[in-house]
Amino acid sequence: MNTELKASKGSGAAARSVGFMKKLLIDHNYILSLLLLLIIGQFASEQFLSSASLINLLKSSVFIGIIALGMTLVIISGNIDLSVGSMLALTAATGVVVFNATTSVFLSLSASVGMGFILGLFNGIFIGLAKVAAFIVTLATLVGYRSITIQFGDGGPLIVDNDAYFNQLRTIGYGKLGPIPYLVICFIAISVFVWFVMTKTRFGRYVYAVGSNEKAARLTGINVKLMKVAIFTITGVLTGLAGFLYITRFGSVDVSTAGKMFELDVIAAVAIGGTSMAGGRGFIQGSVFGAVILYAIDAILSAFQVPAFVNDLIKGILILGAVLLQRALEKERTE
C-alpha cells in the first residue's frame, strides 16, 4: 500500500512535463517518425519539403487514409477487415454505373456510400451476430466482393462518360480551395469527425472497451454484438466514400485491379500509427499519420530511384519494425 502512494505522489509540474514528453515519444511516436522521414526526404530531393510536394503527399494518402479511419475502429475493437480493397472496387464501380445512368453527383455518391453500407453490414452480421472470426469472414468477402465487381464490369474497366465527368466529377477530384485540394479537405474533415466520435462520445469508449475485454464490456451493459455490426458497417461506409472519391479522381475503375492489396497498406497505416493489433488501444490521428508515412516512404524510395519491386519488401520490413517498436515501447510504458 505504501509503495502505491509513493508512486502516485511524484506528479509535480516537472513530472508532468516529463510525462508529456514520454507520452509524445511512446504513445505518439508516429509524429516523430514522420518528421524524421521528411528530413530524410529532403536529402533525397531538394523539393521534398516544398509546400506543393507536401500537399501532394497528403493528396495521395487520401484513399488509404479514409479507409484506415474505419480500419482503426476495427482493429481497436480487436478485429480485422481484409475486404476493404475489394469493397473499394465494388463501391467505386457502383458509383460509376449510377453516375453514367443519372449524371447526378449526389446519386453517385449515395450509391457508393450505400453500397459500402450494405457490404460492411454483411461483414458485420456474420462477425457480430453469427460470431464467425473476422479474419475468415473478410477473407471470404475479399474474394467474393472482388468477384462480384469483375462480373459487374464484365472484366473490363468501367469508365465514366467523358463529358459529364469533365463537367462535374473532375471538379471534386482535382479542384482546390486556395492551394489545398478538395480531396485533402474532405479527408481532414472526416478524420476530425471520426476522431471526435472516438475520443468524445460513448460510442468511441465502447469500441475501446470491446477491444480491451469483450466479456467485461458485455457485463457493463454494452451490446457487443451490435457494436461489431456497427464498426464493420462504418468501415464499409467510409470505404464507400473513398470509392466515390476514387472515381472523381481517376474517372474509371479497373474492376480487377482497383484497390487490390489496399488492405495491406491500410493495415500498415494503422499499425504504424500506433494502434495495438491486440485491440483496446489506438489513435485515429495515428492512422492519418500512418497513411502519410506510407506515402512518404514511397516518395523517398522513388526519389532515391529504388526499383519499384523492392518497394514492397521495404514496406513489409517497416511494418514489422513498427509493430516490434510498439511492443518494445509498451514494455517501457508499463515499467
Binding site: R205, Y208, A209, G211, S212, N213, K215, A216, A217, L219, S276, G279, G280, R281
Partner: peptide, 13 residues
C-alpha cells in the same frame, strides 16, 4: 481480471 477490468482503459473510463 477476466470479467470486470478493461485493462487498456483509464481508471476514469
Amino acid at each position: 481480471k477476466e470479467r470486470s477490468i478493461l485493462k487498456d482503459l483509464s481508471i476514469m473510463d
